[in-house]
Design a protein around this nucleic acid. Structure first.
Length: 304
DNA sequence: AGGATGACCAGGACGC
DNA sequence: TGCGTCCTGGTCATCC
């Protein structure tokens, strides 16, 4: 029996599924549900299914076959053989669990479930979501322009075409933004959330509030390398679990052991030779963590 | 007009 | 015990 009070004691320290967590789920689903037919769909929170058009959603997907699963920013796109798509966003506490992945900490929060058939047996794909912010939508012909969230997504930082050159152009274009603000802006760079934004700027040794126009080309390059490195490492470790995140088997990720600043307020900086203390502050309404010694706030230049 | 700010959504934890 | 506040990301309205 899980003692939830203990697990959730650091409630402000829970985590959202960001790019690496979503990628982990997508990779798992590709392995587990590709080729399955959708036999049935039910929901206990219809409000978040196609903005309340539950019957429409259900009708569109039943009988369809799962062709592939992919990621767009933090969205999970379940491609169907007809060309239509089911678009899922886990928001803060969502998890997609296949078969027996449910445990005590997730089973009581199942909001929607799909009954799938792989030709030999039936299985359940369950959407567990404590906060009920997660959404499920149907998109005809995979036309992403018809989906509000998908249509507004910026470039994917893990895409091969997202080069250092492209990143530099973005940083120059959004010169008035802070570095952290830029990393978190889904319409520019898709997939980075609070945890990884803090980890990336720490790795690059850049203060989160530096303005884009004030960072050197060398720093832009550093930031680019850190962004790709941190995200790649987190995917390798199957994401970060602080409280809620579970992969599709209900298991936690492993990247939380490698976090250098996130959730470490008042703790010692982990960089060798640094005696700094990790600072936490709300920036643009979200908690940011950084080491004031490793990431000094170099005065932002006034624009010329 | 671009960027910042705040409300909203939901509900568990926590302080009093 | 119970109430108010906090916290979280994405979206949207509003303000400067």
């Amino acid at each position: 029996m899980l003692v939830r009070g203990k697990i959730g004691s650091s409630y402000n320290n829970r985590k959202m599924p960001e790019l690496p967590e979503v990628q982990t789920v997508v990779d798992d689903l590709n392995r587990l549900i590709k080729g399955c037919h959708i036999v049935d769909f039910s929901s206990l929170w219809k409000k978040n299914v196609q903005k309340g058009r539950f019957q429409y959603f259900r009708k569109q997907i039943i009988g369809q076959k799962v062709a592939s699963v992919s990621r767009e920013g933090k969205f999970i796109v379940i491609g169907l053989e007809s060309g239509d798509s089911v678009v899922v966003h886990l928001r803060m506490t969502g998890a997609l669990l296949v078969g027996g992945g449910q445990d005590a900490s997730t089973i009581k929060y199942i909001r929607h479930s799909w009954c799938l058939d792989d030709g030999k047996k039936r299985m359940t794909l369950a959407f567990s979501d404590v906060r009920k912010f997660g959404t499920v939508d149907f998109v005809r012909n995979g036309d992403t322009t018809k989906h509000k969230g998908l249509s507004r997504l910026g470039a994917d930082p893990m895409n091969k075409e997202f080069s250092g050159k492209v990143f530099k152009m973005i940083v120059h274009k959004y010169s008035k933004r802070t570095v952290r603000g830029l990393l978190l802006e889904q319409s520019v760079i898709a997939g980075i959330g609070n945890i990884y934004a803090s980890e990336i700027v720490f790795d690059a040794g850049i203060h989160p509030e530096r303005r884009c126009e004030a960072i050197s080309d060398e720093e832009i390059q550093k930031l680019y390398v850190s962004m790709r490195k941190i995200l790649r490492k987190a995917i390798e470790h199957r994401g970060t679990s602080i409280s809620d995140y579970r992969d599709s088997s209900g298991k936690k990720g492993g990247f939380q052991k490698l976090l250098k600043v996130y959730n470490r307020e008042h703790e010692r900086c982990l960089r060798n030779e640094c005696a700094g203390t990790i600072k936490k502050e709300k920036l643009q309404g979200r908690s940011a963590f950084w080491c004031p010694k490793c990431q000094p706030l170099v005065k932002n230049k006034k624009s010329k």
